[in-house]
Amino acid sequence: MVGFEALVRATILGLQFGTTLALLVAGLTLVFGLMDVINLAHGSLYMLGAYFGVTLVDAGGSFWLALVVAPVAVGVVGLLMEVFTLRPLYGREPLYQILVTLGLAFVVEESVKEVWGTSAQNFAAPAVLAGSIDIAGVTYSQYQAFVLLFTTVLVAAIWVGLERTNVGVLLQATAHDPEMVDALGFDVSRVFTGVFAVSAVLAGLAGVLLGPARAVTPSMWFNVVLLAFAIIVIGGLGNFRGAIVASLLVGLLTGYAALLVPSYTELLVFALMAVVLLVRPAGIFGTATGDPG
């Protein structure tokens, strides 16, 4: 029988995984909503965040330095990806964009193997957060609590940024009618590049944050990118609120599954996705027209 304490801990674990997934999903949703690109290399950017982070920490830098520098470096990689491989493909059949991101994912995985080797890297959590805290008789890992707090604040900030700021309005307008935004004198091409780079930074951040908790290996990108897209299907396409709720749902499902049936966490997520597809093909929060919520 699973005890109360284990259950509470699984909840925290699930929530912090969910909010970190939300960072990834936010980036994917932005890129898809704006450019119609299904970016299979998003997981690769997440992976690069973890590898850059581990390298910085190993080189004697602090975790906090890595938390800032690694995502920025990933952002630069994302920027180069967009400029040199996606820009030439806008306006062509969207199929070629998904194909090119598949190719990029392939290239990144093999490059990582060349640079860091195939064995798992040991990413240590910062010493300050190595301990645990006691709340109401249950002990939590400090690091997990930190990740939960940090990502919650960040996701909330992204939401506010999209809904309440001028940049958010510009992005929504670009998603709606890029030609009009172009005609108004904004450089749509730069908006695309900027959004792709920001989504890469978010993926890099998620990589650094989850690095100490999960195995850092050259194939770590695959399951994460599948989970992130499954979340989008579950939450409903082009629906930011749905994406966040679905992230938490999948995070919790993963947390509890890790406790009860550890080998089958991904299977459960895909099963949930299949059920949603059958019952509500537009996603739990999706509308038939796919209006952003």
Partner: peptide, 20 residues
């Protein structure tokens, strides 16, 4: 199952179900 996906989400769905 996968034809329920909008547009290119078909590609992702086939990928996910093969992974199952």
């Amino acid at each position: 199952l996968s034809v329920r996906g909008t547009g290119l989400f078909f590609a992702f769905l086939t990928l996910a179900f093969a992974q199952v």
